[in-house]
Design a binder for these strands. Structure first.
Lengths: 324, 324
DNA sequence: CTGAAAGCGCTTACAG
DNA sequence: CTGAAAGCGCTTACAG
């Protein structure tokens, strides 16, 4: 491996001068820099990251931790984050939740973005003790000094979805829950309930799912294809998709027999039943805002500790006015 | 930051003994290890990765470089790779193509998996000079000592697809190319042509696309909805999907009026037209085989320099026997 | 403008 | 069984 020593020897300068030149220090005249750069290039010298990181106490790497890639996850967020980070001096590194603990503790990264529930709070607290900024996505902030939280506006989204079903004139409206107790599900149910309650005559039904496609599918099976409601708001798209698949098997027409709304506007939702009505999030924008805030924090700027990401109703082909 | 020195001081042992104990050396009695571990835990000591990497000349990180996340990329490969790596002492790190050069040169990783054309050959050669194993996916091997290549069996897949169309009795069969000159496209066209040629009476038509959905869509537009062929093999699913969308707009029924086959079996293909007929790849298995071979190489074992990943025809709802 | 030297936090022969 | 010391490859006050 060629080290800075080799460049020093070959160029006739000292190690310090080579280091200064290569890091573009003001104290080195351009001619010297040119000579040293030429030698470095000829020798194909590249600094050893471990040595540099050890000395600098920083890595210029930003860790982005996720659960996995299969399933309709939020790919556009990654690209939104990446587009911003890639234009900075930092480098984006993705890894799975189980690596977060190690990479944070061992200081392999300067900051983290965490988008998976699997990372324990204790890990985030450890990062905070190290002074490492952590951005948590769609997860409640723990109040730590260096922790920031960007969340989808689940409440508003669920309100829009439910209101749409109410406006369509359905009399009995169901909610298919995600994992009960999760922040996201709590918010979505709360909004659903609030809207239904403020419309006296409408009946509310609640079923329990777990955010997976199969839990949506299974609901139709459990009901044996006889749906005691005219519309359903599923706490996410995957369940809505499963639910619609179930309907197909029982010959239930969407949206003629039943209106279905999801949440998230995942990639595949446009292909479901000619388009799933859902709550849309500008994921790319969400990601780039997170990334920009993160860069600002690393830059010593002040940034809001909590942000909410706006959502909107995206009407497509799975909801319909009730034929009265 | 708490360092090994702090643990040494607090435990009453020397830095060397602490290091040996924490690394589970045989020379340290269990009682000593226990005492030192207890102190390390109480102090929340975790080794600094940069220092360890500098000394060890390795990082235990494996880099996986990709183009981006949007579009129907091969998520299952990532999970296949990850499932194997996560059960080893190594850690998987994903990053974008533009970071590959730096991370390889600066030795931030011990090995690389490259799944994007954007990484130049020179970078791979540099890794080879460093003795760093590199696995390239669906890309021609450059013959370097430490470079391994795992490729989809494009030729066989294209042969299966074309043969299916021939067996259905179509008389004029088209090929919609990907980027001409790319290895993948060359192979797929070669197979297409071989099959057509060996069936004397069938006519071959070739159109040029670029692997994007819009290039499939535009073909229908260019032909103004009048298709001078009865079946088409598109060099990938995205183009097939675009093509089918184009057909819908012109009122052309798939598969009644035209048979369409894609290649890759991307996630969304199951939702297209009741299911796109395509060439399927067991991506999870592909990924886990790559990862296993990589671990074997890092373990000093001998491994095939080139491997081909099998494919199979997946019949769904976009091809149909010609009504004669 | 340039260089000698200290030090980042580890690991590991080596000596005892 | 344990410790003193060298060294991994950089950066950066400091001195001249």
């Amino acid at each position: 491996m060629v080290t800075i020593k080799d460049v020093a020897k070959a160029s006739g300068y000292s190690v310090s001068t080579v280091s200064y030149a290569l890091n573009d220090s003001d104290n080195i005249p351009q001619v010297t820099k040119d000579k040293i750069w030429a030698v470095a290039k000829k020798l194909k010298y590249y600094p050893n990251a471990a040595a540099r990181n050890l000395k600098n106490k920083s890595t210029n790497n930003i860790g982005f931790f996720i659960s996995g890639f299969t399933g309709p996850v939020y790919h556009k967020i990654y690209d939104g984050v990446a587009s911003v980070i890639n234009n900075s001096k930092y480098h984006l590194i993705l890894s799975f939740s189980q690596n977060a603990k190690r990479m944070i503790r061992e200081r392999q990264i300067d900051a983290a973005i965490i988008m998976c529930p699997q990372v324990e709070d204790s890990v985030i607290e450890h990062a905070n003790r190290l002074g490492m900024p952590v951005f948590v996505l769609d997860r409640l902030d723990n109040g730590d000094e260096h922790t920031y939280s960007h969340m989808l506006d689940s409440y508003t989204g669920a309100k829009l979805a439910t209101q749409q079903l109410v406006d369509e004139g359905h009399q009995t409206i169901a909610y298919l829950s995600g994992i009960v107790g999760s922040f996201v599900d709590d918010e979505r149910y709360r909004a659903f309930h609030d809207v239904i309650s403020s419309n006296g005559s409408i009946q509310e039904k609640v079923y329990f799912g777990n955010f997976t496609e199969s839990s949506g599918y299974e609901l139709v099976q459990q009901l044996q294809g006889t749906l005691p409601f005219e519309a359903i708001f599923c706490a996410n798209d995957e369940m809505a998709i499963g639910f619609i698949k179930g309907c197909m098997e029982y010959g239930i027409s969407v949206p003629e027999d039943i209106s279905v709304i999801g949440f998230d506007n995942v990639d595949i939702s446009q292909y479901i039943n000619g388009g799933l009505t859902t709550i849309d999030v500008d994921q790319g924008k969400w990601g780039s805002e997170v990334a920009q805030d993160l860069l600002d924090v690393l830059d010593g700027k002040h940034v809001d500790k909590q942000k909410v990401c706006p959502v909107q109703l995206h009407l497509r082909n799975t909801t319909k006015k009730r034929a009265s």
